Simulated assay, not measured.
Amino acid sequence: MLLVQIVEQRQVLLLTGDRESLELLAEDLRSVGSMADGGHQHIEYYKDFGYLRKGSAPLVLNSPHGGMPWQ
């Protein structure tokens, strides 16, 4: 499982976890990065679901084309 922490003193996002969880996060990053018309994805801890460990900071991944699709 992946633990996402914000280290405010160093202004960094610290990711700690096994290879499988890091690869799942990488897949989500690629997916959001390839959204052609904008969009976003929330990544949060849920018991028995996902790859984040309890205590992880929630993430919102925004497409490089904007956070919401054009309508």
Rank of each mutant, 00 (worst) to 15 (best):
G50M: 02
Q71T: 06
Q41L: 14
S63C: 09
Q41R: 15
Y45Q: 02
G55P: 03
M35R: 12
V4I: 13
D48R: 10
V12T: 10
Q5M: 11
V32A: 10
Q9T: 13
L22P: 00
L25D: 02
S21D: 05
L13M: 13
L61K: 06
M68V: 13
L13P: 00
Q71G: 07
Q5E: 12
Q71Y: 07
P58H: 09
G17L: 00
E44M: 07
L52G: 03
L24C: 04
I43R: 06
S56D: 02
K47E: 14
R30S: 14
M1T: 10
M35D: 03
R53N: 08
L59G: 01
S21N: 02
S63G: 05
E44N: 11
V32E: 10
G67L: 08
P64Q: 01
R30Y: 11
M68H: 14
S31N: 11
G39D: 10
L25T: 03
G33S: 07
G67T: 08
M35W: 15
H65N: 14
G50I: 01
V7Q: 11
G17H: 01
R10E: 11
A26Q: 12
R10L: 12
P58R: 07
S56T: 08
V7T: 06
Q9D: 13
Q9V: 13
R19C: 05
G38W: 09
Q9C: 04
E44K: 14
S56W: 05
E8Y: 11
G17M: 01
L59F: 03
A26E: 11
L2Y: 03
S34I: 00
D48I: 03
R53T: 08
M68W: 14
Q11C: 04
E8G: 06
H65G: 02
Q5H: 09
V12F: 00
N62P: 00
I43G: 01
L29Q: 11
H42L: 15
S31K: 14
S31T: 13
K47F: 09
D18W: 00
E44R: 15
V12M: 04
V4E: 02
Y45A: 04
P64K: 01
E20W: 00
G33F: 10
G50Y: 04
Y45N: 03
L15G: 02
Y46M: 09
K47Q: 13
E27S: 12
Y46E: 15
G38L: 08
I6K: 08
Y45P: 03
N62Q: 05
Q41G: 01
G38A: 09
G66K: 06
S31Q: 15
G66M: 05
V7N: 15
N62V: 01
L24I: 03
L24M: 14
F49H: 12
P64I: 01
F49C: 07
Q41Y: 06
W70S: 14
F49M: 10
L24N: 03
V4N: 00
G67Y: 07
G39K: 12
L13F: 05
M68I: 13
I43C: 02
E27H: 14
P64R: 00
K47S: 12
I6F: 09
S31M: 14
D28E: 13
Q41S: 08
G50H: 05
D18I: 00
D18G: 06
Q11E: 10
M1A: 11
Y51N: 02
L61Y: 06
